[in-house]
């Protein structure tokens, strides 16, 4: 069913079935504007969004396994080393789910993350581009 979308330009409601995105914040930073808007856009596109909030790497891995998620979105408000630890913990737990990231990520940090296959969306990114990446990463 096509649903009216506030945040997307047109390709709405076309995600088929149960496609789950886990959204988490990497640092203890409660700013919520970015994760709110991105989560809403993903929902408008038909994804099921599981909002984990400010959780540790271990919790992200556990929720990813328990909820059988298809994609992990990280809201980065801190250092790249913390994000790299999350990637390490996911790998150690054999979680082979694609990861993308947004937030205040300087170029030196996004270079490191992209080298590990994490697509980065800095402030000002187009929501359509973020949703398109979510579709691509989940083969939708």
């Amino acid at each position: 069913m096509e649903v009216p979308s506030q945040l997307l330009r047109g390709t709405n409601g076309s995600v088929s079935g149960d496609v789950r995105v886990l959204m988490a914040k990497t640092s203890l930073d409660g700013h919520w504007r970015g994760i709110n808007v991105v989560s809403r856009a993903l929902r408008e596109a038909g994804f099921e969004v599981i909002l984990a909030g400010m959780v540790t790497a271990d919790t992200i891995a556990k929720v990813a396994i328990d909820e059988d998620v298809d994609l992990i979105g990280l809201n980065v408000g801190g250092r790249v080393e913390v994000v790299e630890r999350i990637l390490d913990v996911l790998a150690a737990n054999d979680v082979k789910v694609p990861v993308f990231a947004g937030g205040t990520i300087p170029h030196y940090a996004s270079d490191k993350l992209e080298a590990r296959g994490v697509e980065c969306f800095p402030p000002g990114s187009d929501l359509d581009d973020i949703v398109a990446a979510a579709r691509r990463l989940t083969n939708q």
């Binding site: 990497t26 203890l28 540790t56």
Partner: peptide, 8 residues
């Protein structure tokens, strides 16, 4: 909670 993200 801090140790888990100490680099931040």
């Amino acid at each position: 909670e801090v140790v888990a993200r100490r680099e931040d």
